[in-house]
Design a protein around this nucleic acid. Structure first.
Length: 481
DNA sequence: AAAGACCGCGCG
DNA sequence: AAAGCGCGCGGTCTTT
């Protein structure tokens, strides 16, 4: 590892550059194009019957929920119309005032400030309202949430997807735009295959309908583990963060133990990672079970870790921790927590300050591969605009470096594809989802392909910390990971 | 009927 | 209030 010298990477790309270099970026981006072209050509198979069945089943649910909502509201109410929902819940029923009285929580306004918002955050708060006996005060917010979840899935996914299938290939051919984003990411459209649901049970059902087209094919996914954090550790050269990755530790666990000053020997090891861990305490009980540790300490630390990369604010962090199912923390707690994180990883703090300085001084920031982004916001006279620019400045070099790494992997995987092509073996790249690549390959080569891809992904560039990669194999997208 | 603003929400 | 970064898309509602 020679960090004082340039590495010459796949396709003649240089690393690290660390000054704006359109030529280096052009080399990088051009080398990823052949694989992107293959993805366009290959498409991904959709089990149309499965998708339509899901669509119809959810249609019944949506209808029932819609009628229930009309009945309870006492008049036709379109739950998809924010204006109508706000009129009924706030103007007619005054639920925002009740919420304020009962819990002090306030409903936010829409982006333009035109009215009180009726989004997930608002409805979830209203759903929690209880009467004197602990019963749900009003069923409407919960029902509207349920309707919206189903409506979203149907209108955005199960409805349109079958119509995107190309009748000649029976597959869905998304388009990747390699020059759309400010950070070097690809943008997928028509349809967007980078936002197919995964987090909910309904989401998994949709992914289940993306399958292999032949029984002797397999879907293979490979992803770069925590690549933005790894990139941050390298770019900032923060000693503690680097050591975590060099030692192969779990970053969020380390962060939690450090920040809450926990005694590591009192915490039960992750049963999934260390199934045979023997408890040394009398009675066999750990002072802090893994379950408690994970929820109370690791989850906030993990949430904050991601937030740091985005320039999170105390109120934003508070909301994120709650949304992730974590404990309630006051805004002051969150502010202290953020400061504590920067105190622990001081190198990251200094690195962030450097990006802010570059944005202010040059009106732009850049990543280690030479991609740059203009930040004209820093010259605004409006404080909120300047702060938004600084958050972009702190985030771009990290997101951009991560993209550079996967693009290098894509360039190398193109050669892998050519190798199997020459042998007449199926090896189709299908999708890139930011830190992940999905292929459809013949079952005869699955094992060697997985090994090759993992090796390629972790080996395309030599950072001062190891890059991790993982992979999985399945017959459908829903089963992957 | 078409275009566009706005809202809301799916993903990394 | 550009309120946490980066996207694309569908529905509603208004404007042309």
């Amino acid at each position: 590892m020679l960090l004082d010298k340039f590495q010459r990477l796949e396709g003649g790309v240089f690393f690290p550059i660390d000054h704006p270099s359109p030529r280096n970026v052009a080399r990088l981006d051009m080398r990823a194009l052949p694989l992107i072209d293959r993805m366009h050509h290959n498409g991904i198979y959709l089990d149309v019957a499965k998708c339509r069945k899901l669509h119809d089943d959810l249609g019944v649910q949506q209808l029932v929920l819609g009628e229930l909502i009309d009945t309870i509201a006492g008049r036709p109410l379109n739950p998809g119309s924010g204006d109508q929902v706000a009129r009924v819940l706030y103007d007619d029923l005054g639920l925002h005032k009740l919420l304020k009285e009962k819990s002090g929580q306030e409903i936010g306004r829409t982006g333009s400030g035109a009215r009180l918002s009726s989004d997930d955050e608002a409805l979830s708060m209203l759903k929690g309202l209880r009467d004197g006996e602990g019963n749900t005060l009003d069923p409407l917010p919960g029902l509207i949430l349920d309707w919206r979840e189903v409506a979203k899935i149907r209108s955005t996914y199960t409805g349109p997807l079958p119509s995107k299938v190309n009748p000649h290939t029976n597959r869905i051919h998304t388009v990747f735009n390699p020059v759309r984003t400010a950070t070097g990411r690809l943008a997928s459209s028509n349809p967007n295959c980078q936002n197919i649901p995964i987090k909910s049970a309904l989401g998994k059902a949709i992914r289940d309908s993306f399958t292999v087209q032949n029984q002797n094919h397999r879907l293979v996914s490979g992803d770069l583990s925590q690549i933005e954090m790894v990139g941050a550790a390298h770019a900032s050269n923060d000693p503690k963060m680097r050591k975590v990755f060099l030692d192969g530790l779990d970053l969020h666990t380390f962060t939690a133990i450090s920040m809450f000053r926990l005694n590591e020997s009192e915490i039960e090891p992750d049963p999934e990672k260390y199934p045979g861990a023997v408890c040394p305490f009398p009675g066999g009980g750990w002072p802090i079970s893994w379950k408690v540790f994970k929820h109370k300490y690791r989850l906030p630390a993990k949430t904050l870790g991601f937030g740091i990369l985005y320039g999170v604010t105390p109120s934003g962090l508070q909301l994120q921790i709650l949304n992730a199912g974590g404990p309630y923390w006051s805004e002051d707690d969150c502010a202290l927590f953020i400061r504590g994180w920067y105190a622990l990883y001081q190198g990251v703090y200094e690195w962030t300050c450097e990006q802010h300085g570059r944005a202010r001084r040059y009106g732009k920031v850049w990543d280690l591969l030479g991609r740059w982004r203009l930040i004209p916001e820093v010259y605004s006279s409006i404080e909120g605009v300047v702060n938004a620019g600084l958050r972009q400045a702190g985030n771009m070099p990290i997101q951009s470096l991560a993209q550079g790494i996967i693009k290098l992997a894509m360039a190398t995987m193109e050669r892998v594809c050519q190798y199997y092509e020459a042998k007449g073996v199926t090896c189709w790249p299908l999708l890139q989802i930011h830190d992940e690549l999905i292929f459809e390959v013949e079952d005869t080569i699955v094992e060697e392909f997985v090994a090759t891809m993992k090796k390629v992904m972790r080996g395309v560039v030599d950072l001062s910390v190891p890059i991790g990669s993982s992979a999985d194999v399945a017959m459908s997208w829903g089963e992957l990971k």
